[in-house]
């Protein structure tokens, strides 16, 4: 079981944009697989007919009136940008495919 999961974790790393196939991450993968193994005890809990809780408690949703406020000035938006050009965030060229 743990073996299969390690291979899957390499795929996961790709999804999460983390490095794969380096020695350090192999250890990470093994540790994650180990944790999953110990967390698998949950599978034995009888949850038939139990609703999942995505929230800790029932909270009445509060909505916001459709009133625009002043946006951030452009220089504040770009203030922390590692790279910028022409008022935009600059990233490596996106190649579709």
């Amino acid at each position: 079981m743990a073996e299969i999961e390690i291979r899957e974790l390499a795929e996961l790393a790709k999804l999460a944009r983390l490095r794969q196939a380096t020695s350090g991450s192999k250890r990470t993968s093994e540790e994650v697989a180990g944790l999953l193994k110990s967390f698998a005890m949950l599978q034995d809990v009888n949850t038939e007919g139990v609703e999942p809780s995505a929230y800790p408690m029932t909270i009445a949703a509060r909505l916001r009136p459709d009133e625009p406020t002043k946006p951030l000035p452009q220089d504040q938006v770009l203030r922390n940008a590692p790279r910028q050009r022409a008022g935009c965030f600059l990233v490596p060229r996106v190649i579709e495919g």
Partner: peptide, 24 residues
């Protein structure tokens, strides 16, 4: 990695949603 794993298609019911039920 652990968190991405429990949300993956095919695993989400067994892990994330299971955990939510035990949370209940």
């Amino acid at each position: 990695l652990l968190g991405s794993f429990c949300l993956r298609q095919g695993y989400v019911e067994e892990w994330y949603q299971k955990a939510q039920k035990v949370r209940t």
